[in-house]
Design a protein around this nucleic acid. Structure first.
Lengths: 213, 213
DNA sequence: TAGATTGTTAATCGATTAACAATC
DNA sequence: TAGATTGTTAATCGATTAACAATC
């Protein structure tokens, strides 16, 4: 079990989805579930479900299925570790930043929002999802003092290019990146999760126009 | 050329990214680019770039490279068709809906925002990204009259389950889905682009905690 | 015991990468 | 012509699916 390093990205991307469906099952009072039931709900195959779970060390019971609470606990540990929250800062407190901040602030996701930053003086000083918006000048001193591990970027492309260099220098280990710029190419040494909303929207357009469901 | 149906999803997902980088190249005044230059910028291989472009019908020049304007035009046509915008409605005008609406309203993405809907009476009547927020009761009559093709869902999980059935019944062909619920399983007959922000955040957490860049 | 369902190995499928002839 | 780079086929790689023995 916990055979680190051999878990592929496709599997990792499915973990939160498993977690969601299992939470629903638990809420419905189900205590056992089979790989085929889970597969049906998730729109995948029983084979894949079993294969995925076995990346970590099978926690099922042959002939019976999986216990929902065991799965929730195991996958929960994988996703959230031993419970320590990842100290996080957000940069860019516009509309997108505002919406996104609420996801980080929810303590069910495993993060702790320390502060938000913006260049716009009109926003500075306001509260957002429980933290104060600070001027960008304070970024360096804040990071040196508070050692955030994760930065969430909700800024335009051009700012993101410069900011990411600065942030990596300041010891940031991961980015949740909404900027229109690909951090993983410039900074392969950090962990990046890109959310390119414009790209997502455009590829939907392609599929719709080409009638490919 | 335009050999429909044989373009795989991974290729489709890369199209907007090509489009972005080519736009930058054009802005920088470059008129030619090689597959290896593009690959370097995008963090992929020259082989993949050529393979991708050949899904549609090679528009490069052997020995020379690709002309930036030709690529932009061809990929632009793939992404945006002949220029008609996809009539779109948005449901859920909260913080996330508000942020997301600006992407749809930008006419560079190929969509036209017709209206927004919300159950919250306090939001109804306000303007958002150029359209009026309407009460959810008007959804059916609005759809019958205006025939939107795409619906953007920025509502909680439970509402999404019911709404998607209703919207498919009303003739919606595609969803840009931000709700915490998987539309593609319930409605395989429509085109769905899921953006699960919580899932994205959780999988970033896994990777950070397991030091897997 | 019989039925069910996992764990795990093997087969298939598809996407990425490499190689190279065609050609500008 | 020589150098460069595409178009395209072949090889590799990895992920998904199928199959089946182990076992509850």
């Amino acid at each position: 079990m916990s055979t680190q390093g051999k878990v592929s990205l496709p599997v990792i991307k499915r973990l939160p989805k498993y977690y969601r469906y299992l939470t629903n099952l638990a809420a419905d009072g189900k205590d056992k579930v089979s790989s085929s039931e889970l597969a049906h709900m998730m729109g995948t195959t029983a084979s894949q479900v079993r294969q995925d779970f076995n990346c970590f060390g099978g926690f099922g019971q042959q002939g019976i299925g999986y216990k929902v609470d065991v799965l929730l606990e195991e996958i929960g540990r994988l996703l959230f570790g031993s419970g320590e929250l990842l100290p996080t800062i957000l940069i860019g407190a516009g509309r997108l930043g505002n919406a996104v901040s609420s996801f980080i602030a929810r303590d069910t996701n495993g993060y702790r929002l320390l502060a938000a930053f913006d260049i716009n003086p009109e926003l500075v000083g306001h509260q957002m999802s429980g933290v104060t918006i600070r001027p960008l000048d304070e970024l360096e001193s804040f990071c040196l003092e508070n050692k955030p591990a994760v930065a969430v970027l909700c800024v335009p492309r051009q700012s993101a290019v410069d900011l990411s260099d600065e942030l990596v220098r300041l010891g940031i280990q991961g980015f949740w990146n909404f900027s229109h710029y690909d951090l993983s190419v410039a900074h392969p040494e950090v962990t990046v999760e890109n959310v390119h909303l414009g790209d997502s929207l455009m590829s939907l357009g392609y599929r719709l126009r080409n009638q490919d469901s």
